[in-house]
């Protein structure tokens, strides 16, 4: 299945969860604090990452704090 993660197309196994996609994009199986995810413009609480499954063409944004402003 192909979804958009941070604006880039990414192939993930069907039925992948938000937690698995976040792990893929951060390169860490257990991403540290300070990271948040939005699925199709809605925030997904960290406690719901495992239980939230992704669908074809979903848009996932994974953000963290950086220097700026």
């Amino acid at each position: 299945m192909r979804i958009m993660v941070n604006g880039e197309p990414r192939e993930l196994p069907a039925g992948s969860s938000v937690a698995e996609a976040v792990a893929a994009v951060t390169g860490a199986a257990q991403p540290g604090a300070g990271i948040a995810a939005a699925l199709n413009d809605e925030v997904v609480r960290r406690s719901a990452w495992d239980a939230t499954t992704l669908n074809e063409a979903d848009r996932l944004e994974v953000l963290t704090a950086v220097q700026g402003g």
Binding site: N6, G7, V25, G34, V62, T64, A65, V66, Q67, G68
Partner: peptide
């Protein structure tokens, strides 16, 4: 102190947090 929110960059070194 204020910080911005941006897409994660796995290659980033050190965190402002």
């Amino acid at each position: 102190t204020t910080v911005a929110m941006r897409r994660v960059d796995p290659s980033a070194r050190g965190s402002v947090l």
